[in-house]
Design a protein around this nucleic acid. Structure first.
Lengths: 163, 163, 163, 163
DNA sequence: TTTT
DNA sequence: TTTT
């Protein structure tokens, strides 16, 4: 059973980094991928694709990507469901990134490299001087959004980990 | 901006074939793609991925695939939203299949071939004797499901067509 | 830097399984992937794509696939070069399979499952009764072919291993 | 039969643009795709992958990409063979790009956009002011290389066109 | 024959 | 050197 997704697009917002109760890092972000064709009004639309990444690359994503960053994702489609606070079953389709590539060019602030789901920080002698950290990322407030983050460890059991 | 998805899995149900008011064929189906790893309970889960295919290959899909068929999809992820009957905005993430490959083996009932979004029936001398048509496919009844089909032409304007 | 290949096709011959001097399994096979379009003579041609797979999945490939088997490959393109016995530099472009999927259907002899480059035998309760082993696979004789196998451990240093 | 390749890498040289006798544009280029893992010497190697693109996107590639440009390719693997001038059969494995994406960032000289094999120039209001044309690209001289270009229309029959 |  |  093959399940492979490759995306190149731009982050719609800063990534959200959270930790499971047992301390595993998870980052969520959305990629805007411009379509290569125009609709009947002659406009180029975009797809907004939710992505998740786990562990070390989650932290790299949080450190090196921000709103507007160009990034590549190699991963797979995951579907899951949960019951929302109205007792309604919500179905989610998202991309689990196995690796994330930083495509901001040489001159840009981000540096360039790879976040690999297999673990380990980006290699290759790049100087990731962490100038892009977003220290303050809680979204706060009441929220129906399954991607929302209230600053506390999220209620994801390690059973949800895909490995 | 790259956006590419490749899937191999099995149809969870017979595909649903419909036509836009202007006569363009659309088929919807869901692929169950078994994961290649086990969860913490040692079970192999699956992802259930909604797919859409347009025009001639939609008709091929309806004719040659059915519940349980093994199929390959080459396409892209599409996101869209609509307001449901409670006035709530619903976000959809699905795969638009550009080509669908029929992977049922030689001995199986389906035949084997390719449905290409570019148009044209499967080629290659296969004898598609259409023994697998599902003539009666309306799901009927009240339904919140955006993929549901009441037998009438669906309310998709040609503006929704991605070409 | 993204590098991803997905193929579904049929083995042109039985796979060749060999071992490095330090005992790491490697299998080579060629996939015939029929094109989905016809040439100007109206014929459907095929691409013949050389694939390599390492370690446990190499052994799975050798055990469960044979000439004509339908298989899926998820991997990456690798290029390398070597000097042949005439002192000429030869450039090779091949696919390193990270996972190989066995697509022979339920009724077929092979069973069905996944060979994962990450290691581990196919899971999922399939009964791989190994009726398809090819115990005797040496190709023998003088040979210019880098994929040839004379039955002895091949002269691949572990330095060639991509991990 | 699935055959899909996605690459992101840098051009090793300026692309070579040629025309078939009947006037169809073809561009050849090589992408250096850095590997995401290190070898046993701790070095990051690269794969050098030959790509071909036809018609209008071939001209876009020639106009907007040059040595060092970051580009994405979505295409398929093609194998072919020809007899070289020593009467020896040479086998080629290369990537036929169906679309090429220009990933040089906003600030860079290239502009950004998409070259689509389906035809048509990059859309989206980008100002491609063509400041990057390479007017003088013949490689000249005697050459065994099937990618070489002597400035004359190349001897590719339209029969080689994959459509 | 290789790119940053 | 090619598979169904």
């Amino acid at each position: 059973m093959l399940n492979r997704v490759i995306l190149v697009g731009r982050l719609t917002k800063d990534p959200e980094l959270r930790y499971t109760p047992s301390g595993v890092a998870v980052a969520n972000f959305t990629l805007a991928v411009n379509r290569t064709f125009s609709n009947q009004q002659g406009e180029r639309e975009a797809d907004f694709i939710n992505c998740v990444v786990w562990r070390k690359p989650a932290e790299n994503v949080a450190n090196y990507l921000k709103k507007g960053s160009l990034a590549g994702v190699d991963g797979r489609i995951q579907t899951r469901s949960y019951d929302n606070n109205e007792g309604r079953r919500v179905f989610i389709t998202e991309v689990v990134a196995e690796s994330v590539q930083f495509l901001e060019p040489r001159g840009a602030s981000q540096g360039q490299g790879n976040a690999y789901a297999g673990g380990g920080a980006p290699t290759g002698g790049n100087d990731y001087s962490r100038q892009n950290q977003q220290p303050d990322r809680q979204s706060g407030g009441f929220n129906d959004d399954p991607f929302a983050n209230d600053g506390k460890p999220i209620d994801i059991s390690d059973d949800d980990l895909p490995f």
